[in-house]
Design a protein around this nucleic acid. Sequence first.
RNA 1: GCCGACGUAGCUCAGCUGGUAGAGCACUUCACUCGUAAUGAAGGGGUCCGGGGUUCGAGUCCCCGCGUCGGCUCCA
Length: 666
Amino acid sequence: MSITVTLPDGEQLQLPDGATGADAAAAIGPGLARAALAVEVRLGEGDDGGEVRDLARPLPDGARIAIVTRKSGTSALELIRHDAAHVLATAVTDLYDGVKISIGPPIEDGFYYDFEFPPGTSVSEADFPKIEERMRAHVKAAEPFERQDVPVAQARERFVSEHQDYKVELIDDLVANAGEGGDGSPLTTVSLYTNGPFTDLCRGPHAPTTGTVGAFKLRSVAGAYWRGDSTRTMLTRIYGTSFFSKADLDEYLERIEQAKARDHRKLGRELGLFTFSDVSPGAAFWLPAGTSVFNALVSMSRDMGSERGYSEVKTPQIYDAELWRISGHWDKYKEHMFLVESEGRQMGVKPMNCPGHAQLFGMSRHSYRDLPVRYFEPGLLHRNEASGVLHGLLRVRHFAQDDAHIFCTEEQVEAEVRGALQMAFDTYALFDFDVRLELSTRPEKRIGTDEMWDRAEGKLVSTLDELGLSYELNPGDGAFYGPKIDMHMTDSLGRSWQLGTVQLDYSMPDRFGLTYTGADNQEHRPVMIHRALFGSYERFIGIMLEHYAGELPLWLAPVQAMVLPVSDRFSEYGASVRDTLRGAGLRVELDDRSESIGRKIRDAELRKIHYMLVVGEREERDGSVSVREHRGGDLGDMSAESFIERVEGELYSSALTPGKSSERRA
RNA sequence: GCCGACGUAGCUCAGCUGGUAGAGCACUUCACUCGUAAUGAAGGGGUCCGGGGUUCGAGUCCCCGCGUCGGCUCCA
């Protein structure tokens, strides 16, 4: 009896029945046998994911296999990070009596393990050295990972006797889920992995021993709810990362350090854009330079909107609670609203513009001929976000959105969604943003009928497909009034943030009793589309600063050029140059401090100012400026006019939007 | 909101085991008048996040708030 497996190069390998991944590696060559960590197994042609298994497990006949070594990239790293998580748990159970273990998977950049420490014991980063020391001892001992498939009852008994409640719960859930989902066959065994003194309920796979965990480092400690449920126990999560080599680990840590240099909070301070104060947590104070950037974006969304048939409106900040009851926000978000009382009336500061826009739409009669109506309001909003979620400009309590609501007929929905998405991509293209799309469907807590949701979700899917856009499905994550398409970007540390959103809403028009008169002279219900493309200007600026590492494109730069007289004697000429350039619409400042020219250049460079215009005796005589470009160096002398021409050319060349974009930028 | 850490001048930070605060940058003034990344000197600036407590004495130790950071949960 023998089995046949297929190798990645297509070659077939014959092995005795019961042969393992390790046997296969050995059959291919002794070098590979030494390097082998695990084996990736694909069963059918269509099985493109593959399953990574322990080397010690018998191979199924007819499988396509690939030996996993440290050169296998992500799957190899995942393997040793999972190993490292077990080693971490081993060290922690060594050191802390009575600690309860829960789960410890590999993640994007490392691994974690969640523990419940005994009452009175808390662990902080100060404890890392001693935990790492224990971990090193277990890695050095190269303890084999031994897999054991044991009957469910036996495993359960074991963890009950060890007071490992979380493991017991996991087993119970595995059993329950096997009954419902999967192939319906009952679960008879579960797998346990033992390394040294530590045994864990684990699906695997693992490398042959703990010895392949090369370089590792514990990174941080955090609270994490058991099973991600905020009503349950908060466990202590220890994060770490590991690599095959110290060099790889160091390179990773170095990259993280460098990423911190482009943190928008740091750049905002350094470039004098915005600051925060304890007197208003979650709200930015915008300095003149930051306000200039902010206003440039607002004016850009105004221009792009008016080119696309949006009309700007303004609606109140504060509304009677009744309005929020009608919209449904009162029930769902009251605790996140800022409430005020006036003459015995309860009022709420608006957390969003939709009810205001619905109110506005309802105040006049509309014919089908007037639809779609597109209201745009770069409005100020307040949301009383939980203190723990505030994060620089990326999550704030006080912000403005480039918010718009489109009221249209059922037939117009696809075209309007398409238009909004296209406008979004036009916008992101200007910033070289590569956004990730998510389609979020009906949540558990929702308003409206299932039929409405079917229709709304169907329209979003068909529009995405029609535009050939790929997206991730996010079931249950829609707004309470409708499904949505969200556009995400990541920050300097790889965390994902939502920027734009396009939401379809059949409920709000109903709740507000909105109508238009159709061609049949009957009243009809319009459909409402909520959309914001920047999302909040605050968040957009935060992401943008990190994206550009603070080097804003010329058209957005708060100061496009700085005039630098070489000495006080040329301040007057410098001022005249500044005025000439300002007259041409450029944002120019004059540095007339009594400092050396070297100093002024250094300061302008640190502020990342695009152009430095040095003026001295020669320039005054010739009526010219000596142009230095940020990072680019000396460009030589030219007249103020040729400089203006040059800058305008640059502004035009980055003009990707149609219409009057050049005017906007000037 | 929850877990952990942190909070000293505008910024970045030092301040050993408790003995009444310090540097660099920035700022002000004076001198210098400078040619492509830091001229020099002098000076001003701190309820050591806030409030309680322990102590002869608290920036330092304890408690309670607030804020920030890293996660978790949440995100209309």
